[in-house]
């Protein structure tokens, strides 16, 4: 199942709708890379609220997405990680180092506003 990507001002919002397979995640990575370029987005929100498990592969892919988008000039924030999911992730030793996180979409937007304002290189 493909992840829809919405454009909201200077940001892209990828809102995961259901359980993701590995290939869905890889597809998401490719799509985001492409759109950030074509829309010249400054920030990306990936909403993972519906995910009931984020395993090592998913973590690795999310981190890779964030790092890749950074190189393309956009900040990434992962929002909506559930309490039990966060607990399982740290038990697995997965921490999403170097990737922004926020409670939900609203917080994610605030996070990006803050981040992109502070990075003059990415300014309008």
């Amino acid at each position: 199942m493909q992840v829809p990507i919405l454009k909201q001002g200077g940001y892209l919002i990828a809102s995961i709708q259901s359980v993701l397979s590995d290939s869905d995640l890889v597809q998401l990575r490719d799509n985001l890379g492409e759109r950030v370029g074509s829309y010249r987005s400054r920030g990306v929100i990936i909403d993972v609220t519906v995910l009931d498990v984020i395993d090592s592969f998913a973590t690795r892919t999310l981190r890779a997405i964030a790092h890749m988008l950074k190189l393309r000039g956009a900040e990434t924030v992962i929002v909506g990680i559930q309490p039990d999911v966060a607990f399982a992730m740290v038990q697995l030793g997965l921490t999403l180092e170097g990737v922004g996180t926020a409670l939900d979409l609203e917080e994610g937007l605030a996070y990006l506003d803050e981040k992109t304002k502070r990075a003059p290189v990415n300014g309008n």
Binding site: D52, D55, S56, Q82, D84, V85, F87, A88, M89, L92
Partner: peptide
């Protein structure tokens, strides 16, 4: 919480 831990372990 345990259900999630079990699901994550199976995933791995």
């Amino acid at each position: 919480a345990d259900v999630t831990l079990i699901a994550a372990a199976i995933s791995e």
